[in-house]
């Protein structure tokens, strides 16, 4: 190999890359929170809601799980304006990630809900708990404890998938890397750095989520 890697050329752009990294983190945080909220609602509706609502949720989950994220993103960003809904690239990115994670977490949380023994629900009802109290304190509480590891990996997958939002020019880490590459043509160096940043972020997220899980589900 005659080419010498020149990482020093990336130094002047550290602020651009850092901004991109921060955007990726915020994007992940917000869409994780929103996505899990959608997932909880979806899973509850599908398990306890009326049949027609369950059918809608199932269609939503299957549609999202069987199409690529980039197509969902393009549909929201390019397709929806034609139907009269204009979105900024940042909003479109948030929306696409939330919808995507929402579908996967619906399926994950539903599995958790189904694993809760029916006797626990009956016990709650017999203690005169309302429907909502049973859902909140008995069903979801136990469901989340069970599916927490699966949900954690899905969050990391969504975080890595967020690299695609650069394609609609939402200014995440990949967008920043593309920008730097277009300026100094050190493509390989900047993408390697970005890849390592993602790797670090993924490992950090995993251990953070593990720690958080220990704190949340401490009392057994």
């Amino acid at each position: 190999m005659t080419y010498k890697l020149q990482f020093a050329e990336l130094l002047p752009y550290w602020d651009v890359l850092l901004q991109g990294l921060i955007f990726t983190i915020i994007l992940t945080l917000v869409s994780t929170a929103a996505g899990i909220a959608v997932g909880t609602a979806g899973a509850s509706l599908r398990t306890f809601g009326p049949k027609w609502a369950g059918a809608i949720v199932t269609t939503y989950v299957e549609l999202i799980r069987n199409t690529p994220f980039i197509v969902q993103l393009f549909f929201i960003f390019f397709g929806l304006p034609a139907a009269g809904v204009m979105l900024s690239e940042t909003t479109a990115a948030f929306l696409a990630m939330t919808i995507n994670l929402g579908a996967y977490s619906t399926e994950i949380i539903r599995a958790g809900i189904q694993a809760v023994p029916k006797g626990h629900v009956d016990a709650g009802v017999s203690l005169a708990m309302t429907k909502w109290e049973v859902l909140r304190h008995i069903i979801l509480n136990q469901a989340f404890r069970k599916i927490y590891p699966a949900l954690s990996s899905q969050i990391i997958i969504v975080m890595l998938g967020s690299a695609v939002v650069s394609q609609i020019s939402a200014q995440d880490l990949t967008y920043a890397a593309n920008f730097v590459a277009s300026r100094n043509f050190r493509n390989f160096e900047v993408y390697l750095l970005a890849a390592l940043a993602y790797l670090l972020l993924a490992m950090l997220t995993r251990s953070l989520l593990r720690g958080l899980g220990r704190v949340i589900f401490k009392a057994k």
């Binding site: 690299a163 650069s166 993602y198």
Partner: peptide, 12 residues
Amino acid sequence: FQGTPLLMQLFL
């Protein structure tokens, strides 16, 4: 390969 985006791998 599991901890980096597929997009980054394609670029690399």
